[in-house]
Design a binder for these strands. Structure first.
Lengths: 250, 250
DNA sequence: CGGCCAATTGATTAAACTCAATCTGCGTGG
DNA sequence: CCACGCAGATTGAGTTTAATCAATTGGCCG
């Protein structure tokens, strides 16, 4: 990934996940980096399980995930829940809240989460002052669409084991970009109930599908993580297309 | 919807669907309207069935649908197809193509379609020159996310008849905003195979689910259209939330 | 040591898929 | 004008996948 000489010389360990993510895409000036870091000064914390965006409620704040995981989800009148996507460090929730006064989804902390609350008008400011950053945010938007599109593909056209493998691969690739994987070991803060509500399956069936992947030797289950033993085989069986998350463009 | 006195006095029949859509959201100046109309001067036509965006291919053009319907879809290696969303007149495809050089989905004409091809740099120009329009486009983006989120809800957590009813209601509300419905009669240019690939079901099951809705008296089927006999009952049974497509904000 | 949340397992039911025909409306060529 | 062909819609029958109901187990924290 970031094996350019110059990149290796820069001290990046202090950068926020968002700046790291954008930095993987384009070369930012010191001023641009400083502006993006400055955006993330207003820090909130959400406890595990706590909602911080509510479907139908007024919604006039943009959030940047600093660390921890969150979920975007919808609750139906019947009580069923559909998780739409996972928000990982560096992800932005509510980048496009301007006119629409009401949220169209809820968001909750999956782990304890640190969030930066940003006035959406400052995001508009970016478009005017920092064209490179604006293009970077536009790329983030396109990527979110691709991720949600892949979620629809999983739900609509994959079998249970495929859905699981496909989701695991998506999360692995996304965490890889922000440097949060340890080799093929994937952090798994979500419960099997969460997986069921993500993949449109029942809890029981998720459990059996996980067992199926384990018995095939494709994954090894641990307490709060999962090892992807054969990423190529998993990608093939899940019909996973990593280009949708392409980490390099230009 | 648009029952303001001033709006009623304006001659809007010549406006493009995109301008009508944005006009339902915010009051645009003559200059802004002229700019948006000017954007759509480079017109292409796609025949029914013709692809005009291909997953994985270079993608550096933004398209505005002028009339007709298109689909966004993904093809899997197994040959299965998942339709992600329908693009109706006034919808924008590839608003966020800037950095990402490759498309993450394909798009095809569902009917004969007239498209405006726009240089994405002109979209960036909007952010700098026309803040109202920029906010309007941002709203379009948020709406696209809500539509795709609803698609995930359908696929993940609704039964077959619910999925159908939910999709019909979405399309009806979206067409209503651009003034393309005749009462409760909904245009239906897609085949049952298309519906199957949209809703993650088999062709046979789509047919039986449509029959089910018909037998309940909720819809009346015609050749190329469908009548929604009881929108309230349909909304209730499909757990449909029209607020996700909210036609008025501010 | 309980109590609780999450994971696991078994047994049965229900939803949706597949395979295989058949039917229908419509355009085309004879 | 009609037979033919084709795409799309419809129906039947049997199979598969996943849901539901119902316990049971395992770990962890107070």
């Amino acid at each position: 990934m970031s094996s350019g000489l110059i990149a290796d010389l820069q001290p990046v360990e202090a950068a926020s996940a968002l700046v790291r993510k954008l930095g993987a895409l384009c070369l930012m000036s010191e001023e641009e980096i400083a502006f993006m870091e400055g955006l993330q000064n207003n820090v909130l914390e959400a406890e595990k399980g706590q909602d911080f965006i509510e479907d139908g409620a007024d919604f006039r704040t943009t959030f940047v995930v600093l660390n921890g995981w969150a979920i975007r989800y919808c609750l139906l009148p019947s009580g069923r829940r559909q998780i739409l996507s996972y928000a990982l460090p560096g992800d932005i929730l509510g980048l496009h809240v301007n006119f629409r006064a009401k949220a169209t989804y809820s968001a909750a902390a999956l782990t304890r989460v640190r969030l930066a609350a940003v006035d959406p008008r400052r995001m508009l400011e970016i478009s005017q002052k920092y064209p490179i950053l604006a293009a970077g945010l536009s790329w983030c938007t396109a990527r979110e669409f691709a991720i949600l599109g892949d979620q629809a593909v999983r739900l609509g056209r994959l079998g249970a084991q495929q859905r699981l493998a496909h989701l695991l691969l998506e999360l692995w690739h996304r965490l890889e970009l922000i440097g949060k994987n340890e080799g093929d070991l994937l952090d798994m803060p979500m419960t099997q109930t969460d997986l069921a509500d993500t993949l449109g399956l029942s809890l029981v069936h998720i459990n059996r599908s996980l067992m199926g992947l384990r018995k095939k030797g494709l994954v090894t289950l641990h307490r709060d993580s999962i090892r992807l033993n054969n990423i190529d085989a998993l990608s093939a069986m899940a019909e996973f297309n990593p280009e949708h998350l392409a980490e390099f463009s230009i």
